[in-house]
Write a protein that binds this DNA or RNA. Sequence first.
DNA 1: ATACTTGCAAATGATTTGCCAGTGT
DNA 2: ACACTGGCAAATCATTTGCAAGTAT
Lengths: 159, 159
Amino acid sequence: VTAPHTGPPIEAQDVDEAVGALRARGLRVSAARRLVLEALFNAGEPVSADRIAGGLEGRVPRSDLASVYRNLETLEELGLVRHFHLGHGPGMYALGAEGDREYLVCQSCRHVHAAEPAELDDVRDLVRTRFALAPRFSHFPMVGLCRECRGGLGGGDPR
Amino acid sequence: VTAPHTGPPIEAQDVDEAVGALRARGLRVSAARRLVLEALFNAGEPVSADRIAGGLEGRVPRSDLASVYRNLETLEELGLVRHFHLGHGPGMYALGAEGDREYLVCQSCRHVHAAEPAELDDVRDLVRTRFALAPRFSHFPMVGLCRECRGGLGGGDPR
DNA sequence: ATACTTGCAAATGATTTGCCAGTGT
DNA sequence: ACACTGGCAAATCATTTGCAAGTAT
């Protein structure tokens, strides 16, 4: 376990750049490590550790699930990766630093909206003044019903 | 698995009243079932299935964990019990119907604030108009930092 | 050379399920 | 009586950990 990331966010544009950040931190660049990065760049959207280990349905070579988890943790400490929790189900991993984005999820259709933190500032203000709590939706997203799913009465997983 | 609860919420004041609701639904009143209710009334706050099965540190007799889960599910379908998820960690169960309360949790000190849904209506309105999502904090609470924990820089689990 | 990593197996924690014996009604 | 329940073991899912063997620097 490496020291947690502090300082300016790392905005890697490609695998090589991310690999550079690894080197700069004195971390080794192994095949397994590079694969996790390749998968995340390749996915372009949040994915589970399991899907990364599975090779994204053939788009990248498959790797060991335990190593994927270990490497995701390492990359997260480095500030290259963030993850959040989509209700029940596995954690979702994406490129970027913790707090880069906040998420809003529909409990019925599972659609995920990624928002800039600034977009939520007045929601945060409202909640903070009323409940003395400054909410963050980056690790545990806001859950609700989107317009479409609200439409009919039929909708969705009530959990 | 019984039919899901519809209609007016059941507001049981004690175990006997809750037991009555079971009978009214044609469900059997077993010792294990009564124990779960006894534990929930006794706890007075949200508790995990594990703690119920453990007998709340001796306050009620202990029972089988699998049965506790099954009975909590039954009682939830009946509308007597609700549960929500506190970040990582086990689900928390309490008396009342789903949606009765919404929760706000501090990610650092884990303090839980239970709010009346109406208190959150304008937060909901704000989010709904901006993001086309009507949020619900009854099953997946709002997570953030409370005033005390926000104070220092030291604070808490960044997950 | 050697400390950092991997891969595989086994452990963990929360929750669920199969199954058969037990029991409410 | 008989369908509904309980208890216990075993299964599942997501994630973590132990450890010997492999490898990046």
